[in-house]
Design a protein around this nucleic acid. Sequence first.
DNA 1: CGGCCTCCTTGAAACGTTTCACCACCGTGT
DNA 2: ACACGGTGGTGAAACGTTTCAAGGAGGCCG
Lengths: 331, 331
Amino acid sequence: MVGIKDVAKRAGVSIGTVSNVVNRPHVVATATRNRVLSVIQELGYVRDESARQLRAGRSRIMALLVLDLGNPFFVDVARGAEEAAHAQGINIITCNSGQRVETEASYLAMLAEQRVRGVLLSPVDTGGDAMQAFRRSGIPYVFVDRKVPADEASSVSVDDVAGGALAARHLLETGHHHIGFVNGPTILTQCRDRDAGVRSVLTGSGARLSGVEAVGLDVASGRDAGARLLGMSPRPTAVFCANDLLALGVLQAMVGAGVRVPDEMAIVGYDDIEFAGAAAVPLTSVRQPAFRLGRTAAEQLLAETEENPPPHRQEVFTPELVVRESTRVRR
Amino acid sequence: MVGIKDVAKRAGVSIGTVSNVVNRPHVVATATRNRVLSVIQELGYVRDESARQLRAGRSRIMALLVLDLGNPFFVDVARGAEEAAHAQGINIITCNSGQRVETEASYLAMLAEQRVRGVLLSPVDTGGDAMQAFRRSGIPYVFVDRKVPADEASSVSVDDVAGGALAARHLLETGHHHIGFVNGPTILTQCRDRDAGVRSVLTGSGARLSGVEAVGLDVASGRDAGARLLGMSPRPTAVFCANDLLALGVLQAMVGAGVRVPDEMAIVGYDDIEFAGAAAVPLTSVRQPAFRLGRTAAEQLLAETEENPPPHRQEVFTPELVVRESTRVRR
DNA sequence: CGGCCTCCTTGAAACGTTTCACCACCGTGT
DNA sequence: ACACGGTGGTGAAACGTTTCAAGGAGGCCG
């Protein structure tokens, strides 16, 4: 592998000069610069970032550690983060934990060892050993889609309690008295918060709530939950799902069983992913500003990795209900 | 930031011993090892991967550079790759070029400077400068979802010509004589191949082909293309889309315009992403084994980064037609 | 009691950069 | 002729690891 030394020797200059050509071209004379540049071309020299970083003490890479890339919501978050980072010439690498605690831990360890510039975090497990160790590493991080106490770190999130409430209220207003709630794993704050929102609205409303906890937050888990819903008697007349993927799964189960949506079963999803509007029955969903979430978080993180970091901030966006066929009231 | 020296001093041993505790625990006496380990704990020491890598000359990270994470097909590819890599204790980082040539170039440069262990590549632009430079870097790479000459590198792909042919034949067999083809940007080999497949079947069949080139491979481009399709006269009675996202967009355009699917317009997509089956009208689609694609490619890449790399291989999977509502013949 | 083996530990070199103090040279003003 | 400033280039230190030859401390055998 060709290094700066080879270039120096071949161009008949010192190592320092080659380094200058690469990093501060203006300080070296035009003739020398061109000679060195052409040798670099000729030899195909690529500088070694690990050496550079070892010297500099800091990396030029930011990372995004994401709960589940299979969820288009997070893909949009990633896009937003990428946009913000690229605008400042920083590359973002994405790590997908797939909601597995061990995978997450392994990525956290890797990122710490890598001395990454900063990390955008949407962790499964905020309290675990891996996360504790990561905190101590001193690498700046910002939580995405999860709120944390202000003294720990910045966060950019969406008010999930409000989102859950929004969905529940909508179902009440469209005349339902028995509502199913397909929630995801309650280890996730998002799920607990949405649950809290639902309960805050339903408690004392006279409506009945039937909860189902899905094993995952994907379509397959949704189909599964749908089947369980179908087995209930009395069966709820409407269901709120913690996630559009779950909602799509539930919808598939309903269609498969010949249960008409929304007439026999209204469905509300969460996230308003692009596919929600294109579903067999277009889904009513609680929209989150995913792209902005990612962008805002990345901007904050970038700011916090600068010389004089600004104080931590907790940004909370407000979700919005998008009504479609799946809860339309027919008269 | 605490380094190996701090640990050594505090534990009263040499830095070599600390290194041994971390990397070859068995060679150090139990008492010493425990003492060092507890100091590591206490100080929160995390080893610096850039120094480690500088010394070792190679990284322990693999990368996946992907065309578009917004396409669930690639998310599945990523999952497959992650599975294979994690099975060998290697972490995979994902880089999303979003089909932008400059973004791709910038990631390629970054990965080369990073001296990554190996890269899984689904590039927009195989011939560009960035790619040329990357080849020279000597980092092992394997193409995913794209075939290349055997002497350059390994590749794992799906026969796109066959896939295109499969779709076209299906539409002929279901009685269509005027077929639309919504293709993606022809800079992508995949799109050119699918086109070739379609033409090979339609040429001489007596059927008419109306081509539309979408600007992207996403839902919005599909809606756009759908609108163009609707403006044609005579209007095709069926359309094959190079991609399920395009197909979903076209479907939305049809639904929006009150054109019945499949009666007035049959639709075939490509990839068979999870959402295809859950669409307003479940989509017929050409299925690709995305997960296996990713897993196989990662396995090959891992093998090629070993001591005695196996020869390059070209693995080509065969696509499969999945028939659903969107092309169902009613009688 | 000397020699030898085994088990642990050490110190220093090396990895490929960046940075910085220092030097050589040249032209200019006095 | 001399001092001086500016320009362009050099050499060496430093970054935090890993690795490896070498050495010290015991224990065992003859």
